[in-house]
């Protein structure tokens, strides 16, 4: 049972990541290879808030979201001036810079040693969220909250403006909308929500180190979004569930662990290529990327 709950918690964490990445990739058509950086910043701020500042659950979560979103805003302003390949390169550059800082600024982040023993967050200073069932509930509540917020965003004037920009940015420009502002808002919101995943990861695993937030992770997040599909809510949900559950399936098939790790990556790669060739909207998305 605990095993099942653990997988579901991981699915919830990845759902928040893919849903927020979907806002920039699927709605704004901006392929970002820097999502793991925001995930990581969120996790490190959470560790700092819970350990050093001794904050309770909601203040820590809010602080993590605010700081990550501010960093996302700055990175967005810089990189969103560029388009296509250049934008992707800029996000990739920031991803690597942030990873290098997390890895090498040892006096602050403890670098490669990571931060162990992150205390469990307390709800209003009363109930301690500790153990697997409370975390499952917490992660589910946060994931559902994020999904609801994004559902509303998609059907709000803001979401429609994003979709319009994706489909025909010049038409939107002629209607007097500020495209750069729209993109920056989307990028900031998405990075803020990636911090929620970081919060859950740091508080649940109680140990973080920079290697969980490297370029491979960023590529993994984008792969999950692409596999699931972009443009709606269903796609990212299916993508997140798929990438988390597939390795466990392989284990049940009886594949030895050392082969399974490589095998699942080969399967992801194959699925990506096949989808890009024959079904660009992913398994369940509605935007033909």
């Amino acid at each position: 049972m605990n095993y099942l709950l653990h997988i579901l918690i991981m699915v919830n964490i990845y759902i928040i990541l893919t849903v927020s990445a979907n806002l920039i990739v699927g709605l704004a058509n901006l392929l970002s290879l820097g999502q793991a950086a925001f995930y990581g910043i969120g996790a490190y701020i959470t560790a700092w808030a819970l350990m050093t500042l001794g904050l309770t659950l909601f203040p820590a979560l809010l602080l993590s979201i605010l700081i990550t979103a501010s960093i996302g805003f700055i990175i967005g302003i810089i990189s969103l001036r560029l388009k296509d390949d250049y934008f992707i390169l800029a996000t990739l550059g920031f991803q690597i810079i942030i990873y290098t800082v997390l890895y090498n600024w040892i006096s602050v982040t403890r670098g490669p040693y990571g931060i162990p023993g992150i205390p469990s967050p307390k709800l209003f200073g009363l109930v301690e969220i500790d153990g697997i069932l409370p975390f499952f509930l917490l992660s589910s509540i946060l994931a559902i909250a994020v999904i609801v917020i994004f559902r509303n965003l998609i059907y709000s004037p803001f979401g429609r403006a994003l979709k319009a920009m994706r489909d025909d940015s010049i038409a939107l420009l002629s209607l007097g909308r500020n495209i750069t502002k729209l993109k920056t808002q989307a990028f900031t919101i998405a990075s803020g929500f990636s911090a929620v995943s970081g919060f859950l990861f740091a508080a649940y695993i109680t140990y973080i180190d920079p290697t969980s937030f490297n370029l491979d992770e960023a590529i993994f997040i984008i792969s999950a979004v692409m596999i699931g599909g972009t443009g709606n809510i269903k796609g990212p949900l299916i993508g997140a569930a798929f990438v988390v559950i597939l390795p466990e399936m392989l284990r049940f098939v009886g594949m030895p662990d050392n082969i399974a790790a490589n095998m699942r990556m080969i399967i992801y790669g194959l699925i990506l290529i096949v989808l890009m060739m024959f079904r660009r909207q992913g398994l369940a998305g509605d935007y033909k990327f």
């Binding site: 992707i88 792969s223 290529i273 660009r280």
Partner: peptide, 12 residues
């Protein structure tokens, strides 16, 4: 973007 994602798939 599509070609880049496929290329990432190839690399993986």
């Amino acid at each position: 973007n599509v070609i880049m994602i496929s290329s990432i798939g190839l690399m993986i």
